[in-house]
Design a protein around this nucleic acid. Structure first.
Lengths: 212, 212
DNA sequence: CCGCTATTACTGCAACTTGCAGTAGCACTA
DNA sequence: TAGTGCTACTGCAAGTTGCAGTAATAGCGG
């Protein structure tokens, strides 16, 4: 049982879903905590059935069938046991940062473009969370009893996404001071930042460029 | 060619490495931007050789051999072409948030433990970045000309990690107001947060609990 | 009422990735 | 001299992704 299996099992604990509904629900609500492919989300419930944590039956809509999955008592027990295990550390993949680390291969403009793309991607995520919250406010939550959890979750998203957007502005203001991406090394500014960081004193809001 | 292939190719552009050195370097310096397994990092340079982007030869240390990889001109061209492609959107996996979303399966104490574990994991990453910066300040960067890039990268890490630590404190103060994890639904507090979030006005620092 | 597009509802498969076990030499030390 | 830890990898099963493919239904314009 992987974490993804438990994620699907937790959804099944809310109600019975078809495979199709499950993929949609997981892509909508879990996307920013546990992003998994549609393909996997179709496979997971089958594994749950094989382990006895769910049952399945087919339902007809005219000539087309869908697979409905329901959690079993053994499934609920497995879920309770999962709750008591150690969580895994977060895993964060940001290709834009990889490009930054190797930005001396390219030009200042290349690096600025990378920041623009990161801003676009993060801004999109940010807006979609804001939209979701607006819809909760207007039309309520699909599982009203669980609103408090979704909303606290959303505060995490908004806080970290905004923090990334703030960093992008900071990075732009730093890069604007660079004559080139290459061979800068330990400038006065970099030395000052390194000292702040090494002393645990770095704070974006207090670290605006010395020479603006 | 995957992004991981280009990450390894970019390392090879800095200098020649043995497979062993490559895994260590990638785990150390790329871990927080592009976390990849040791196993993969041993395989990638072989694929680069197969594509003509790197060459390899064996070196002896007594009775033991190691594989040394070097970038080719074709490799440098591939790297330059990569620089011009669109970056992928960040991908963030946080199991602790998955637990939060389904916290109504367990107790308040379970949820508090999850936050403690997240704090420990994030705190560890934070401290290791601070340590790395302290070492740059004291003994310099392994590639001095590239210090400015590593340091700007580190400001991202510190800013976002601190922002997560701030959120953990916020989440704790919210959860302390909950009598239970279940069936809270749309309380006054949750409604107020939902409104702020839906209007794009949420700010952790201004959102301290109304009734402390 | 017919063709078109969008949505519903999946499956197969190759390629990518991880975690773990296993192999083996070398360096240091109790 | 046995044990521990580091160097330096490889094999393999299982997890995961992206893409292509299949097929039925619903709604709409003409």
């Amino acid at each position: 049982m992987t974490t993804s299996s438990y994620a699907v099992l937790a959804l099944l604990d809310l109600r019975a879903w078809t495979g199709y509904e499950l993929t949609n629900q997981a892509q909508r609500s879990l996307r920013y905590a546990w992003p998994k492919s549609e393909r996997l989300l179709y496979s997971e419930p089958k594994k749950l059935v094989a382990r006895g944590y769910a049952t399945t039956h087919k339902e007809q809509t005219g000539n087309r069938t869908s697979n409905v999955y329901e959690i079993t008592e053994a499934g609920r027990e497995a879920l309770a046991a999962w709750t008591r295990t150690r969580t895994h550390a977060p895993r964060i993949e940001v290709e834009a940062l990889l490009r930054l680390l190797f930005a001396d291969h390219g030009s200042i403009e290349d690096l600025q473009r990378v920041l623009d793309e990161l801003e676009a991607d993060i801004g999109e995520q940010h807006d979609s969370v804001v939209e979701l919250m607006a819809s909760y406010f207007d039309s309520g939550h699909p599982f009203p009893d669980r609103t408090h959890l979704s909303v606290l979750f959303a505060t995490f998203q908004i806080e970290t996404l905004q923090s990334i957007l703030r960093w992008i502005e900071f990075a732009r203001s730093e890069i604007d001071q660079w004559p080139t991406t290459k061979d800068l090394g330990m400038t006065e500014r970099t030395e000052a930042l390194t000292r702040l960081l090494g002393e645990g004193q770095f704070d974006l809001n207090r670290a605006q460029p010395a020479d603006d």
